[in-house]
Amino acid sequence: MRFDLRLPIGFLFSIFGAILVIYGFITPAEAYTQSLGINVNLYWGVVLCAFGGVMLGFALRARTR
């Protein structure tokens, strides 16, 4: 069985995303003045999770075939 690179990529970005989302929830709004008042941790965390999820999805689909 061949090593599928999408698996570690998916895991890595899902974990990064999850950390950012959680961190985004617990930080006060003042922490985001430098990022123009946008809670970038939360939003970008969601994007990373979505990317990681898609990669994992592809890898798992290939595996079940």
Partner: peptide
């Protein structure tokens, strides 16, 4: 350093 808050800065 200017734009990224702790968290995203790590990324």
């Amino acid at each position: 350093k200017h734009y990224f808050p702790t968290g995203l800065l790590g990324l």
